[in-house]
Design a protein around this nucleic acid. Structure first.
Length: 641
RNA sequence: GCCUUCGUUGCAUAGCGGUAGUGCACUGCCUUGGUAAGGCAGAGGUCGCGGGUUCAAAUCCCGCCGAAGGCUCCA
């Protein structure tokens, strides 16, 4: 490390030391160490003295960050809060039985069996009040190791805890109990040393049903979600962030901007409206532009295909509950849930030579999947959607380069939207087909490609598909949420099932390697993500309304029409507002529909043959020659910014 | 699929046993106004669908359809 002037030395919770420039705050430091810790910092001690997290540090200080993570990285603040919630609910509803209550990513939850009692969000103020009252008496947690017999006796009233005790006893684990006044709980620990002192901001967020131990075979419990932070300020920031995310909700914006709708005549079946279709069309156009340049061939395969195809592919036996099937003239048919069988069918229609490889068959294919009604959500989880699919056939020695090529396409396209992303590599699951050797080889090839691309990646051992290993790409939108979109999968199943081959340089038949890959993933989903990512303010190339021309008075209508026509003639999407409404109103409405450029024309502009230009973000460009504006807009569209 | 909550005009909502209200949007008229809501008037509703209770149901009960938040994070 190059020595820094005025550097401060920070002793991190793990004991390691790091240098920062003077003026850095504790919060900056925790953020630089890792996102988790930023929210985890309780307080900091500089040279033995406690400081505020926002306080800039001077040089030559040694800092200790006191966090609410315990030694095993568990979030003791949120976990302690879950205990507090359990104690409060049981105190308010004495018949309630608490099940588990862990800390989760952004807070905590606690499950309850409430018998016939129903708790709703209206009860939250009452519960929160009780929590505050109880917290006053919670100076510390008493945790005690107990005999199994005693534990069973203590929790005779609670079948969930009993089940856990039995289980832990069977595993030879020690049983620990914690007591806060009246409230006794079974808990393995991971609490704050001083709950009263450190729980400063908590809030209950929602109530939901959840199966005991996550299995639908078990009883449905009531789960209360909440969150907690070491300060009121951080809690408020978090709540504010949730509000901001709600404003971007694609379902809300989709309605407000008239982009799409999902109606009760088809749950999970989106209707794309004219303005939404403009964006959709641009996404497809861009996709084709990139893929054509990258030597992909495009195909289209039918929606509805005979049962025999699905029997060959294995979907009829393994995927039937997700397929829409129907009988036509006494034959069984199914709507395609995936594009690959159709793609393979095209491949099989003629002989192939290694000279054609890699053979890239792309298809923006409409698929139908019967998802459970309860999992449907806006455009994010639907029953019919379009995959920007491609099936690539190649020789084994081409796989590494081809994966790199696909990663390069992904990088190119995601950069256009301003998405940062990270890669995840999933390896062989327990239930899988194919030989050990085949798996070993394809995993090694994917890994070699990942290493070569230099992006860094996370390994999810055992998370691959049953037919092959995969690479998933997770994008991060502008408010920090991540979404899995692109995926690259090696398929060791379908080529066998369809018995596809190619002729090698040795004149013999060989089995090609096939990979599936998508970039957008689902166009519906990607569209939804984009709506939230841009908060409805689409960049010019995607924007449904690129410009609105509005008039000051009726006598300017004719000229305004000419201006609109000129821009339209140059290929822009333009609206004309000649209503006899006030200018502030017309400007406001143009802004609300997120028109990129708002052109006002009045006496001055008619005389000078110009338009007065402003953007939806209140940037006033002033009087401009229309041709010059068109030139500027063309450049903006071209650069897709 | 299961749990909780919810479905009132194009949108957002009030009403929660006794003639269905408001705001925005829409239509008409007045206004011809210079950059985020000018004024007045009007039209628009099988209160998701079906059944039940009641003298009377948007309101209470049951069933169905649809939506939202969950159902992975383990004492």
């Amino acid at each position: 490390m190059t020595p820094m002037t005025n550097a401060i030395t920070v002793t991190l919770p793990d004991g390691s030391k790091k240098q920062y420039p003077s003026g850095t705050t504790v919060l900056d430091i925790t953020k630089s160490i890792g996102e988790g810790l930023a929210r985890a910092a309780l307080f900091a001690i500089v040279n033995g003295k406690q400081v505020h997290l926002d306080e800039p540090l001077k040089e030559d200080a040694t800092l200790r960050i006191i966090t609410f993570k315990d030694k095993e990285g568990r979030d003791s603040l949120r976990h302690s809060c879950a205990h507090l919630l359990a104690a409060s609910v049981i105190s308010l509803w004495p018949g309630a039985k608490n099940a588990i209550g862990p800390a989760i990513d952004n807070g905590f939850y606690q499950d309850f069996d409430l018998g016939d009692t129903k708790i709703s969000e209206e009860d939250f103020p009452k519960i929160e009040q009780k929590m505050r009252e109880m917290l006053e008496t919670w100076d510390h947690f008493d945790i005690q190791e107990v005999e199994i017999k005693k534990a069973k006796k203590d929790f005779a009233w609670n079948p969930y805890k009993l089940e856990l005790i039995e289980e832990f006893a069977g595993q030879g684990k020690t049983i620990t109990e914690t007591r806060q006044g009246e409230f006794l709980d079974l808990c393995r620990g991971g609490h704050l040393d001083h709950p009263k002192k450190h729980i400063k901001g908590f809030k209950l967020l929602s109530v939901a049903g959840a199966y005991w131990r996550g299995s639908e075979k078990n009883k449905m419990l009531t789960r209360i979600y909440g969150t907690a932070f070491p300060s009121k300020k951080e809690l408020d920031e978090y709540l504010h962030q949730i509000e901001e995310a709600k404003k971007r909700d694609h379902r809300k914006l989709g309605k407000a901007l008239d982009l799409f709708s999902i109606n009760e005549i088809g749950a999970g079946m989106p209707f794309i409206h004219p303005k939404g279709m403009v964006i959709w069309g641009e996404l497809e156009k861009y996709w084709r532009e990139v893929h054509h340049r990258r030597k992909y061939l495009e195909v289209k395969t039918p929606q509805l295909l005979h049962r025999s195809l699905w029997e060959t592919s294995g979907h009829w036996t393994n995927y039937k509950e997700h397929m829409y099937t129907l009988k036509i003239d006494d034959f069984d048919y199914a709507l395609k849930p995936m594009n690959c069988p159709g793609g393979l069918f095209i491949y099989k229609m003629k002989n192939h030579s290694y000279r054609e490889f890699p053979l890239r068959l792309g298809e923006i294919g409409n698929v139908h999947r019967h998802e459970l009604s309860g999992v449907l959500s806006g455009l994010f989880r639907v029953r019919t959607f379009h995959q920007d699919d491609a099936h690539i056939f190649m020789m084994p020695e081409q796989v590494k380069d081809e994966i790199l090529e696909v990663l390069s396409i992904i990088d190119e396209m995601y950069s256009t939207f301003g998405f940062n992303y990270h890669l995840e590599f999933s390896t062989r699951p327990e239930k899988s087909i194919g030989s050990d050797e085949a798996w070993k080889q394809s995993e090694a090839t994917l890994q070699a490609a990942l290493d070569a691309c230099g992006k860094g990646y996370k390994v999810n051992a055992g998370d691959g598909a049953f037919y092959g290993p995969k690479i998933d790409v997770h994008i991060k939108d502008c408010i920090g949420r991540t979404w899995q979109c692109a995926t690259i999968q090696v398929d060791m199943n379908q080529p066998e099932r369809f018995d596809v081959t190619y002729e090698g340089s040795d004149g013999k038949r060989h089995r090609p390697v096939m990979i599936h890959r998508v970039v957008y993933g689902s166009i519906e989903r990607f569209f939804g993500i984009l709506i939230e990512h841009y908060a409805g303010k689409f960049p010019l190339w995607l924007s449904p309304v690129q410009a609105i021309v509005l008039t000051v008075a009726d006598r300017h209508n004719e000229y305004a029409g000419r201006v609109a026509k000129e821009l339209e003639g140059q290929g822009f999407r333009v609206e004309l507002d000649t209503r006899s409404e006030s200018i502030p109103r017309k400007v406001r409405e143009a802004q609300l529909q997120q028109a990129n450029y708002i052109l006002v024309v009045g006496d001055k502009e008619v005389e000078n043959k110009t338009a007065n230009v402003r953007t939806r973000d209140n940037v006033i460009q002033g009087e401009m020659n229309v041709e010059k504006l068109a030139l500027q807009m063309r450049q903006e569209v071209k650069e897709r910014r």
